[in-house]
Amino acid sequence: MTQIVQMKGMNKYFGKLHVLKDIELSVEQGEVVVIIGASGSGKSTLIRCVNGLEEFESGRLEVDGQALAPKGGNQQALAEIRKEVGMVFQQFNLFPHLTVKKNIMLAPMKVKSTSQVVANATAERLLERVGIGSQADKYPSQLSGGQQQRVAIARALAMEPRLMLFDEPTSALDPEMIGEVLDVMRELAKEGMTMMVVTHEMGFAREVADRVIYIHEGQIVEEGKPDDVFDNPQNERTQAFLSRVLVR
């Protein structure tokens, strides 16, 4: 199996705050890794390092064969990585001045010089795939949160990424819209997409993840198959966290 992400002894600080501590993590191609942990534990920061939205201070990070240097070094590798890694944000971050379709067409046309005709066809196909083919010419503000997040997924997929990062994709959604976004993600996983997902949706994690990682204060304290982590956590931190979130 090929490893698409490799982190070795990675450390990250926000000023004096040590937010990621000696992270050792690798992700295989086709694998779905779900990262859980309390807020402020560093789980978002961890996946934001993968596409260079956050710099790290020491250690090694390799993504899709490209090595990123600490402190934002190696811009060349970063540019390559970003073409291959898609990201979905908590707040969607759609471009409000562009229609839904143009949101999706922008990156392929600017980055890969895809022709307008091809980009247009791709956008329509992807919108169909995430179930909102009829909304192509609307502006993001005219869509519901769930629809916006599905557009954001389509926008990332338009670059044909080899890895998708999801940073709490359902945390900003009304409860009734969470399902429609998770459905799209479930589909993606089924089709073999490599995914790193930060989420509080434990049901989704248990069902879709190949591996669950629990982060506590910037450290990976537990990782394993979802059933093992959820039913039989070894670390007491994990036990405490799960007992809080799984009570319902």
Binding site: G52, R82, L106, A107, K110, V111, A152, R155, M159
Partner: peptide
């Protein structure tokens, strides 16, 4: 988040600025 979205899609800083 707007520039993060642009950068994450592979756009350069200049492209992100002028088109987003």
């Amino acid at each position: 988040g707007q520039s993060e979205a642009g950068l994450s899609l592979g756009l350069s800083r200049t492209q992100t600025f002028w088109s987003i």
